[in-house]
């Protein structure tokens, strides 16, 4: 039964992974891996010497940090709120509404934000119509990080909630009843029953998120790049796209991708270790 999965993984994942060898080559797609020249770590040393690369890394990490603080807790809060809604019909309706944006493409989300708070959007035009100075929130590089976080929340908070809702449903209702009978109020029940029940899931997702610290999305940034400039909107993935894929320098792009993978692995290991220290199972454990 496992065999087909192993074969699939082998063919579509592990075998292509070998292609990373081009990170050590002056790779030309027209010559192929076999005939491209090996240049050792030249791609890496060029990359580490490139200020634009570090800008991209820094942007990516800042976005991850901000999203960890502002985005990550929101699905949890949403799940708790929704869990307390008793009417099934109202609950389904709210769920439907908050899930929906997840299925919108980034193009649509960005256009929507543009139409609302862009320079010629609803907000700016109504300010102008009323004699105020118009503001354009879409083109401010300094607040770009908050803008993308807001967009991510609007788009994906509802979707992220699903896992937590599922976790909530596994908490034994008898615990709540017993606690209530013992005189615990809402807040105490939340603190002593709900949150501990959610803790393994929260830790697991946190670790996985950390592993993806250098991945913050691609489309969202490429779409808004010209609005705020490459300095604010360049993340690792767009850097790879522009400096690797578009100009045809695949070896260089692969080097940046490899760097990303290695950093992600280290972060996962560290976070997992930390999870063990606080007594959680984490992603895996040595048994």
């Amino acid at each position: 039964m496992v065999l087909p999965v192993v074969v699939l993984l082998g063919v579509f994942h592990y075998f292509p992974t070998l292609g990373n060898v081009i990170a050590f080559q002056d790779y030309s797609p027209y010559a192929g891996i076999r005939d491209s020249e090996f240049i050792g770590l030249a791609n890496f040393s060029r990359m580490f010497a490139e200020p634009a690369f570090w800008t991209a890394v820094l942007n990516t990490l800042s976005i991850t940090a901000v999203q960890l603080v502002f985005f990550f807790p929101i699905p949890i809060a949403l799940a708790l709120l929704l869990n307390s809604v008793l009417s099934v019909r109202l609950r389904t309706l709210i769920q439907g509404v908050v899930y929906l944006p997840h299925f919108f493409s980034w193009v649509l989300v960005v256009s929507l934000f543009q139409q609302m708070i862009g320079g010629a959007g609803l907000l700016a035009q109504s300010l102008r119509a009323n004699g105020y100075e118009a503001i354009d929130l879409m083109t401010k590089p300094h607040t770009f990080i908050l803008l993308v976080t807001a967009q991510s929340i609007w788009k994906d908070a509802g979707w992220g909630m699903i896992v937590f809702l599922a976790a909530l449903s596994t908490i034994n209702p008898a615990l709540y009843e017993a606690a209530a009978a013992d005189g615990a109020n809402r807040r105490r029940r939340l603190w002593h029953i709900t949150l501990p029940g959610l803790r393994p899931v929260i830790v697991l997702l946190l670790i996985l998120r950390l592993g993806d610290a250098l991945t913050v999305g691609f489309e969202q940034f490429i779409l808004q790049r010209s609005a705020v400039g490459g300095n604010a909107a360049e993340v690792l993935d767009t850097y790879v796209y522009y400096q690797g894929l578009l100009v045809g320098d695949f070896g260089y792009g692969a080097a940046a991708g490899l760097f990303k993978g290695v950093v992600g692995l280290v972060l996962v290991l560290v976070a997992n270790r930390f999870a063990h220290l606080v007594g959680e199972q984490g992603v895996y454990s040595r048994s």
Partner: peptide
């Protein structure tokens, strides 16, 4: 690309 990025930033006052 890098030069154009800088140029666009200058045009737009960034």
């Amino acid at each position: 690309q890098p030069f154009d990025d800088a140029l666009q930033d200058i045009f737009r006052g960034r």
